[in-house]
Computed example of a mutant assay.
Amino acid sequence: MSPENQLSSTDFILLGLFSSSHSSLVFFSSLFIVFILTVTENAFLILFIHRDSWLHSPMYFLLSHLSFMDILHVSNIIPKMITNFLSGTRTISFAGCGFQIFLSLALLGGKCLLLAAMSYVCYVAIFHPLHYSVLMSDSVNVLLAVGSLNSIVHTANVLHFPFCEPRVVNHYFCEIPAILKLSCVDTSHYEQGLDVSGIIFLLIPFSMISVSYVKVLHTVLQTKYSEAWKKSFSTRSFHMVVVIMYYGPYIFTYMKAKSYHIPGQDKFLAIFYTILTPTLKPVIYSFKNKDVLKAMKIMLKSNFHHKN
């Protein structure tokens, strides 16, 4: 059935990642496994952090919130992809598309600010350890509120534009750059506002993170690789891997003009910050983090002795 015949007056068509049925079947199987794995990993990390007093610190408090947001993010996108595959359709309602835009943008913006907050926590822990415990949970609520407010503004603006028929979105979920391509009117004025949000939520936090890690690296090199500094830098370097995987594609997607967007490229880049990063983050922070591994060993030993 053609996209035009599947549409109601307000529905959109999501073309997805692959067009052939064979590729879609292989992708669907992999996607289902990735979804279950991502939710399980992040849920385990949240429970583990809240259960073990060894990890009751600002850094892991922020990490647990980041994992919860990752669960919401993949749940906002992947189940709809799976549902469309099983039903044999590619439609998404106007309200469903708007909800995807709102929640995705709110979570992406909130995670950008949380990653910046985590880098600040790392910086304080290294250079001002006496002030480390001052960081409170109220800051998280503020960051999430700012991200939600930004998302409300952009969702309302994007959905206000008239869209040309057929409403075929060359993406696997409703994302602002892909939706703007369907607009029948000039959106350049709105795109300037989108650039402002990109500066606030992407460039400024990423610059702050980069500066803090440059200073940490400079300090590590000056201390002649003492064990304490090497351990500290090793832990923070994995955080930087997540930052690069997340911010890089996100900046490249949202900080360029609509005319320069290539659908295949946008979909490929979106995989990094919507699927790969939420899946790999728990692994990076768990199995590559000495504090988490130590707490995990203590918990396993405690459970073993309790059973005996």
Results as ranks from 00 to 15, higher is better:
173 F>P: 07
115 L>I: 03
93 S>L: 02
170 N>S: 12
106 A>N: 11
147 G>D: 05
98 G>E: 07
153 V>D: 00
101 I>L: 15
128 H>V: 05
95 A>M: 15
120 Y>L: 12
163 F>D: 07
160 H>P: 00
173 F>Q: 06
157 N>H: 09
142 V>G: 05
174 C>L: 05
99 F>I: 14
139 S>D: 06
145 A>G: 11
165 E>P: 01
126 I>W: 14
109 G>E: 02
115 L>T: 00
99 F>V: 13
144 L>N: 12
131 H>K: 11
136 M>T: 15
123 Y>A: 07
107 L>P: 00
155 T>Q: 05
147 G>L: 04
166 P>R: 12
105 L>P: 00
131 H>F: 10
151 S>E: 04
156 A>S: 13
131 H>L: 12
158 V>F: 06
164 C>T: 08
115 L>G: 00
98 G>T: 05
166 P>L: 08
133 S>F: 03
120 Y>N: 15
114 L>C: 11
107 L>E: 01
165 E>W: 03
92 I>P: 02
104 S>C: 12
114 L>A: 06
98 G>W: 07
116 A>I: 01
98 G>L: 06
143 L>I: 08
167 R>M: 13
115 L>H: 10
167 R>K: 15
160 H>L: 05
147 G>A: 15
122 C>P: 00
122 C>T: 06
167 R>V: 03
119 S>G: 10
94 F>R: 09
129 P>Q: 07
137 S>Y: 13
108 L>F: 14
160 H>C: 07
140 V>T: 14
104 S>W: 07
173 F>N: 10
127 F>G: 08
109 G>K: 15
92 I>Y: 04
92 I>H: 07
134 V>R: 05
165 E>I: 01
123 Y>S: 11
127 F>I: 09
148 S>F: 02
144 L>Y: 01
163 F>N: 10
103 L>W: 04
131 H>P: 04
117 A>V: 01
148 S>E: 02
153 V>C: 03
156 A>V: 14
172 Y>T: 01
97 C>I: 08
158 V>M: 01
165 E>Y: 05
117 A>C: 11
112 C>T: 10
126 I>T: 08
94 F>E: 11
172 Y>A: 14
110 G>Y: 09
97 C>V: 03
129 P>S: 13
91 T>L: 10
103 L>A: 03
142 V>H: 08
112 C>H: 11
99 F>D: 00
156 A>M: 15
158 V>A: 00
140 V>I: 15
151 S>R: 07
146 V>H: 00
109 G>Q: 14
130 L>D: 11
154 H>C: 12
167 R>Q: 09
136 M>P: 01
122 C>F: 10
133 S>L: 02
101 I>C: 13
163 F>G: 08
